[in-house]
């Protein structure tokens, strides 16, 4: 297993944002993480990569206990992530942003090699033409790609994608979906938080559904979309299953 999340709970004061979440992730898969707003998806990401220390529970990455370890430790071990609200290093160029990822990621490359990797990754995500602009000057879609490029430049074993499709137009969404597929083909394991259902249903091997911090379902996209509890919790919409499968076929 590349990642083992064991009974992870995160409380903020009286509020339990994530409650007893347990799952194992084999290498090479894409795991979709869905649930209504405020279900604790991003909090779970934060518990996995060390932004938060879980109140209870354990997170192991490639056999190593990383519960509550600093975020840079997870990064060095090969766990990269993107942020839901993009966080570009504004006053550095796009290329420098990605070089940071390569320099300080799993391989900890030297500057010269990192530059090489950065150019490669920028071409892959389609930002090569903007490499020398300041990151702060990009638009939202480009900033999302930059987040992705930085994470990829780290050459991670596991990639956490936090709503990389949100706010993109239809063409940009399909472009990004293709990109995610290609990443998986390179052997990178992925967990993605996503609201755009047809995308997540399409891409994921397995899906976990969170509601009020609890894992209410897990399984293949097919299983999950037919789970009555999911349908009720997710939108209270009995048509959901039909619609999701509909979308999946498109």
């Amino acid at each position: 297993m590349i990642l083992q999340v064991n009974n992870v709970t995160k409380q903020f004061g009286g509020l339990t944002a994530v409650k007893n979440v347990t799952f194992d992730l084999p290498p090479g898969q894409i795991l979709g993480l869905i649930g209504p707003n405020g279900a604790g998806k991003t909090t779970l990401f934060n518990c996995i990569n060390g932004v938060y220390t879980p109140t209870r529970g354990k997170v192991s990455f490639r056999g190593e206990d990383i519960t509550g370890a600093p975020t840079y430790r997870a990064a060095r071990l090969g766990l990269a992530r993107t942020h839901q609200i993009v966080r570009p290093l504004n006053e550095l160029t796009v290329r420098e942003n990605v070089i940071v990822g390569a320099c300080y990621g799993r391989e900890g490359l030297g500057l010269a090699k990192a530059e090489h990797v950065a150019d490669e990754v920028l071409a892959f995500v389609g930002l090569a033409a903007r490499a020398n602009l300041l990151a702060g000057s990009l638009n939202v879609a480009q900033k999302k790609r930059l987040e992705m490029a930085r994470a990829l430049a780290a050459r991670p074993y596991l990639l956490l994608l936090d709503e990389v499709l949100a706010g993109l137009n239809t063409a940009e969404v399909s472009g990004m979906i293709a990109t995610i597929r290609q990443i998986r083909e390179q052997g990178v394991t992925i967990i993605m938080i996503e609201h755009i259902m047809h995308a997540v249903m399409n891409l994921s091997d397995r899906i976990i559904v969170l509601n009020y911090g609890e894992m209410i379902a897990a399984g293949t996209p097919e299983e999950v979309s037919q789970n009555p509890q999911v349908i009720e919790a997710y939108l209270g919409d009995p048509e959901l299953a039909a619609r999701l499968l509909e979308e999946e076929k498109r």
Binding site: P70, T71, A75, R87, V100, Y104, G105, L111
Partner: peptide, 22 residues
């Protein structure tokens, strides 16, 4: 490389750490 890490910290320390800058 060290300097690049510093500048990443300057721009956004938390994001820099997530990228692996100690």
């Amino acid at each position: 490389k060290f300097g690049l890490g510093l500048m990443a910290i300057r721009e956004d320390e938390d994001a820099a750490e997530v990228m692996g800058v100690v």
